[in-house]
Simulated scan of single mutants.
Amino acid sequence: MEFTEVVRRRRMVRRYADRPVDPALVDRMLAHATRAPSAGFSQGWAFLRLDTRVDVARFWEVTTPEHADPDGKWLTGMRSAPVVLVPLTSKAAYLERYAQPDKGWTDRDERRWPVPYWYVDAGMATLLILQTVVDEGLGACFFGITPERVDAFRDAFGVPASFQPLGAVTVGHRHPDDLGSKGSPARRERRDVDEVVHRGYWGS
């Protein structure tokens, strides 16, 4: 698929067909994720791969908020995904990398960082997953894990405290009757390029 088409077709899919995903395709998604840029080549990301019915069911069991409607459209659709990928990031990996001799920030002071690149880099890795999904003709949706459920998630899957989940990505074949919810774009127009690009000077 042409890259322009990959970008154009990327959208969040919230309902999936009852079909397995080829494990080789999941391998490719994760391999591409590790090609994302990272500050100082820290590579402080990690990815939890859940692609068995037992593991996926456990994920939803421990991350679903108590107030959520178990029979609601969103949750029912999302639970139909056969694969869940959880991108995580380690701030400690970045602070340690930049304390090494070629960087020299031995105090590990977070104030040295203009923005928390451990989140930026993991976000770029996640986007590569989403783009690979489109290129393979599949559907995906990135969503957050509510803060009150993060500890339960860690306990269920043995995730160390040094890694923070960015959220999760459901992956699967699009349901034939639901090729992807339009979500907010159905209610809000996409901003034109000229509205968000400032050439030479803000507002120009």
Rank of each mutant, 00 (worst) to 15 (best):
S162K: 12
S90V: 03
F47I: 09
D109R: 10
V196G: 02
P70M: 01
P37T: 08
E5Q: 15
V86C: 01
A140Q: 07
L30D: 04
A186R: 13
G77R: 04
M124K: 00
R35Q: 13
P87Q: 02
V150K: 08
R19H: 09
V150Q: 06
M12P: 11
D121Q: 02
P82Y: 02
A140E: 10
P70V: 07
D51T: 08
A57V: 01
D135Q: 12
L127S: 11
A186S: 15
Y94K: 06
L30E: 02
T106Y: 04
Y98D: 08
R187K: 14
K103N: 05
H67W: 15
R154P: 07
R190G: 07
E66M: 00
T34S: 04
S90C: 10
S80P: 02
W202M: 01
G203R: 03
G123K: 01
G104W: 09
E110I: 13
A81V: 09
A31M: 02
A93L: 09
P65K: 08
M12D: 15
F59C: 11
E189S: 14
C141T: 08
W45T: 15
F157E: 03
R79L: 04
V115R: 12
L48V: 11
I129M: 14
V26R: 12
G139T: 13
V169W: 08
G144P: 01
P37M: 09
L130M: 15
E61G: 03
L179G: 13
V62Y: 00
P70C: 04
F47A: 11
T170M: 03
P165Q: 05
V7P: 03
G123I: 04
L75S: 05
Y98K: 05
R108Y: 12
G104R: 05
V150M: 04
P165D: 02
W45N: 10
G44D: 05
R191C: 01
Y119L: 15
D121G: 05
T34E: 07
T89F: 05
A140Y: 06
R28P: 00
A152Q: 12
R58I: 04
L130E: 15
T52Q: 12
L50R: 09
R199L: 13
A168M: 00
D27A: 12
A24Y: 07
V54E: 15
G158R: 09
M78G: 04
S80I: 01
F142A: 14
G200R: 13
R187V: 06
A93T: 12
E189N: 08
R111H: 08
W105V: 00
D178Y: 10
R53A: 15
E148C: 01
F47L: 07
L85W: 06
L85F: 11
D194T: 12
V193N: 01
V26W: 10
V21I: 13
K182D: 14
D55I: 00
E195K: 13
Y201W: 12
A92Q: 15
V171L: 04
K91L: 11
D177A: 14
D71V: 03
A122M: 00
T126K: 05
V197Y: 05
S42D: 00
T34R: 13
T76F: 06
F163E: 04
L127K: 09
Y16W: 08
H67Q: 14
A33W: 11
K182Y: 04
G180W: 06
D18T: 14
E110P: 07
A186D: 13
T126L: 13
M78N: 12
V134F: 10
